[in-house]
Nucleic acid binder design. Structure first.
Lengths: 331, 331
DNA sequence: CGTTAGCACTCGGTATCCTCGATTGCCAAG
DNA sequence: CTTGGCAATCGAGGATACCGAGTGCTAACG
């Protein structure tokens, strides 16, 4: 749909604009890029590209900048199959080499890693607890009328939630429930659990039920880590854009559904208005699913200005999600 | 040191500037405030106040704005003993009424609450795990060479950390270590623990030692929750100030020591450069310790522009820290 | 002697105007 | 179809002038 020369010109505009954030003019393209053609010709082509919606002029007598559509074409057809530079590879490698310990901590650090590598805000949606193998379950009394149920998962994750218990419930009943819970849950997953088998004792059953119920709720609210929010202040000059974006990023709910939505639609990049979150219309989001054994357990992504470095972001996000998936699969 | 009229004028300037963010002139004061005196007199007084370092003129022929010293005098001598408005009282009450469940979640929400109430960034430094009573301890194997140690505390907190184990270590040894750990720790605190008693079995002892060591480390890195960072974008017009502040806020380490330092010095407000963190010199920090049974378990605070509403911030932070302390004391 | 009115002065902010340069669109020639 | 040339456009940046808020000073006042 776009002949080769237009393609080359569009590509050059995008590259240049990403690098400089300045509207780029025809002469610049004619001179610098590989298209061996005069500025006048470039001008003509750019006029067409503008008509077709790939470019806009901020004002007459300024150069052109890419539209969302322009970026879209760029990432779909032009972005060189992502190569991450060697330094990045090394850093990611070192990171996952050293990564240890608690799941949440690792995910948190992963978002920082992505920020460091891409200089954009980063989002990590942790795996839902649903799918992980339960290695241990217990109920611990905290006070006369509260107890906490603790589940340890094979991937190093530990979830807990407080449940209410009756003051009159003796410790022995709690202990029995704990044992029963452990027996029922260990080795399985929360997701595959249909309902808790009964032990006959009403009090014990009641506690087990509420424990499982609580854990179901907990395992549903995703762990989400947003890192590098301060980079958006670096990405935009307009302070009101910064405000809007930061404010939106703080609403975890919005961020989660934003990323989920993009991943669910099978996309890896959402450019500007494509993601439908109006306050973020100056931003693009690059995501990748975290896949373990064919299962989609979470997502990682970065969020930056529409004029972000897509090839690098795509490659980096891909690499990190892969390594993270592999890492999660190990345990 | 400041006669009554100067005091009144300073107070009026601070109030006005906090409200409008605009330099305030003598005529304004003469007209609006209670000082029944002409603008010329006010001018004279203001000139003195400037010499003494309480006020500055951004430029000749502009009104005056308070200096850090001016704010300091204001909060020390002029701020009306903090009254929170009724709506706030109600909101805080409702919040702690409804607060339940996991400690980390509650602390996180507390920082959001503070942000909502003061429209400033909020910091909550969670209690170190040191002091809480241990209700349960166990070791769970995750993989041939990793296990996680889980501690449940009386306040609803659950800490866990992954430790390395030898592949050759049989499950029975782990189980023994788990039992021994539970016996040793339950009912006590990490802080009061000197060293783990031996059971004679070398392998078991080794695991217990590394488990306790890991938990000691974990219990030392404070839980810190920073909420409402996006409000700093609302507080400053200069985008580079926003950048600096946000960037600083993202460095948990800096935030923690900042707050700790202020609390340790027995202060409740640090104004501008007083806290010594240079990139935050346009900000003030209002803090209050979380006290439970006379023990200082953590801190809450808000961070905003030096021209923040000190009386309200002080009162709100105080109220929240009190309620939080009371809440933590319950369990 | 403290207070006040009056006044000259200062200086930042805003508006206006102009110039400069980058860039475009178009046209006519190659 | 491409290209060189050229007039036209328009924002950015700089200079200028004006306005108004606010000050400091001085002289008068009670």
């Amino acid at each position: 749909m776009l002949d080769e020369r237009k393609t080359a010109i569009l590509s050059a505009v995008v590259h240049e604009y990403i690098a400089t954030a300045l509207p780029v003019g025809s002469s610049h393209i004619a001179r610098a890029s590989g298209v061996g053609v005069s500025s006048a010709t470039v001008r003509n082509e750019m006029a067409v590209l503008e008509q077709e919606g790939y470019l806009v002029q901020p004002h007459t007598s300024a150069g052109r900048i890419p539209t969302d559509k322009g970026y879209r074409f760029f990432v779909d057809h032009l972005a060189a199959p992502g190569r991450v530079d060697e330094a990045t590879t090394r850093q990611v490698g070192a990171f996952f080499e050293a990564a240890h310990g608690r799941l949440e901590e690792m995910l948190h650090q992963t978002s920082d890693l992505l920020t460091k590598l891409t200089h954009n805000a980063a989002v990590v949606l942790g795996p839902k607890a649903d799918a992980a193998t339960i290695r241990s379950a217990q109920i611990v009394r905290l006070s006369p009328n509260a107890a906490t149920v603790v589940l340890v998962f094979g991937n190093g994750n530990v979830e807990n939630e407080v449940i209410a218990v009756d003051e009159t419930t003796p410790d022995t009943v709690l202990a029995a429930a704990s044992v029963h819970l452990a027996r029922t849950l260990t080795g399985g997953t929360l997701g595959a659990l249909d309902l808790v088998s009964s032990v006959g004792d009403e009090a014990v059953d009641a506690i087990c039920t509420s424990a499982v119920e609580a854990m179901r709720v907990v395992s549903n609210d995703a762990h989400v880590y947003v890192g590098g929010a301060s980079t958006v202040a670096d990405s935009f000059d307009a302070v009101d854009v910064v405000r809007q974006v930061l404010h939106t990023l703080e609403q975890q709910f919005v961020v989660v559904s934003l990323v989920r939505d993009i991943v669910d639609r099978g996309m890896s990049v959402a450019i500007g208005v494509e993601h439908g979150v109006e306050p973020l219309s100056a931003c693009s989001v690059v995501v990748a699913p975290i896949v373990v054994d064919g299962e989609h357990l979470g997502s990682v992504g970065v969020l930056g200005p529409t004029r972000m470095n897509y090839p690098q972001a795509l490659a980096t996000v891909d690499m990190v999600s892969n390594r993270l998936g592999r890492r999660l699969g190990e345990s």
